[in-house]
């Protein structure tokens, strides 16, 4: 079966809803705040994959924006050529690539903009937008076939 949503990541990924915290008044907000991205050192983050990092609760990696989405991209592994166009142009760091391979979509951070579908070069596209309510397997079952070029 094709991979649809990727499970690569730590247990902390997208566990909290943005804005779910207790609100404080404008005169209670502290001025000048230091937020740590990681528990421990920040150095060397460039050499660690997301699943190897020790994210702090302050990192927006632990938050989710999935509720922004009304349409979602569905990924079809069978057609994908791993060109990584979607990876380079995804504005939300939601395309999960490891070792030159596209693994799937991070549905905790994807906002459903559809840029990945537009830049996908395959025929038919290996990423397509579906309504948020559509089941991924159902979407894959009805995937369009290759379009023939008009002469």
């Amino acid at each position: 079966m094709s991979i649809t949503g990727s499970t690569v990541g730590t247990d902390k990924r997208g566990v909290r809803e943005l804005g779910g915290e207790e609100k404080v008044g404008w005169d209670e907000v502290q001025q000048g705040v230091v937020l740590n991205s990681f528990d421990g050192t920040t150095e060397g983050a460039a050499f660690l994959k997301a699943e190897e990092r020790n994210y702090a609760d302050f990192n927006s990696y632990t938050a989710t924006v999935a509720s922004w989405r009304i349409i979602k991209p569905v990924y079809n592994r069978d057609i994908c050529i791993d060109c990584q166009n979607c990876w380079v142009w995804c504005p939300d760091t939601s395309i999960i690539s490891r070792d030159k391979q596209m693994l799937g979509i991070d549905y905790d951070h994807c906002k459903g903009c559809g840029v990945c579908v537009e830049v996908c070069p395959t025929n038919p596209k290996s990423l397509l937008m579906f309504s948020e309510a559509t089941d991924n397997d159902e979407a894959l079952a009805g995937w369009p076939v290759k379009e023939k070029k008009e002469k």
């Binding site: 460039a46 939300d92 991070d106 951070h109």
Partner: peptide
Amino acid sequence: LKEFSTNNDRFEGA
């Protein structure tokens, strides 16, 4: 792009 994509993102989603 394939080589480029092996980098680990340091700008997080959400």
